[in-house]
């Protein structure tokens, strides 16, 4: 007589346990995977918003709250993603009375660029030649490996530059910065 309600209760408990396990295991995995950043080097935008020369507030509005931030009176740094696998760093310096972004470093190999596709998956010398041929940039410092592997190109008609390379065993990076 009492078996049917007991079975229903047992099924409900099982369902609740399964739902809990799924929530605990899947949710952090989803949260830990940051969205793919979309860069446009022609327009100097990240996620469709201007990224250089912006206030800290504007950067938060464009990219969201950073995972960690260090802010002093003259400089600030926003880090997106966990320390060991960050996807973006935004560096600020004081201009006049406000902190403004002057450099953005991108290190997620899934990064999408409007013209180049996935630049951090290209061999560095190939990336350099495509920055020149497809985006009309000028080589400032040809890519080479010394104590570190690095190349720099300049965006014509502006003070902006793009650096790219890798630090020994670390992932490749691309940095868009104001050279003034």
């Amino acid at each position: 007589m009492c078996i049917q309600p007991l079975r229903r209760k047992l099924t409900a408990v099982r369902f609740a346990v399964v739902a809990f396990v799924v929530a605990v295991t899947v949710a952090p995995a989803v949260a830990a995977t940051p969205p793919v950043l979309r860069l446009n080097l022609k327009l100097q935008t990240l996620g469709g918003k201007p990224i250089l020369g912006q206030t800290t507030r504007a950067v938060v509005a464009a990219l969201g709250r950073p995972t960690s931030r260090t802010q002093g009176p003259r400089r600030a740094r926003f880090t997106y993603g966990p320390a060991g696998a960050w996807s973006a760093l935004v560096l600020f310096r004081r201009q006049g009375s406000t902190l403004r972004s002057w450099s953005v470093v991108l290190a997620d190999r899934r990064l999408r660029e409007a013209t180049l596709g996935t630049p951090l998956q290209l061999p560095p010398r190939r990336l350099q030649s495509r920055l020149v041929s497809e985006l009309g940039m000028r080589v400032v410092k040809p890519y080479r490996c010394g104590t570190t592997c690095r190349g720099d190109v300049a965006i014509r008609g502006s003070q902006l530059r793009v650096g790219f390379g890798r630090v020994d065993r670390r992932p490749r990076y691309l940095v868009l910065y104001d050279s003034r």
Binding site: V105, T147, R150
Partner: peptide
């Protein structure tokens, strides 16, 4: 650091 503030050179 390298130009653009990244990476740090450790030199």
């Amino acid at each position: 650091t390298e130009a653009g503030g990244y990476p740090y050179g450790c030199a």
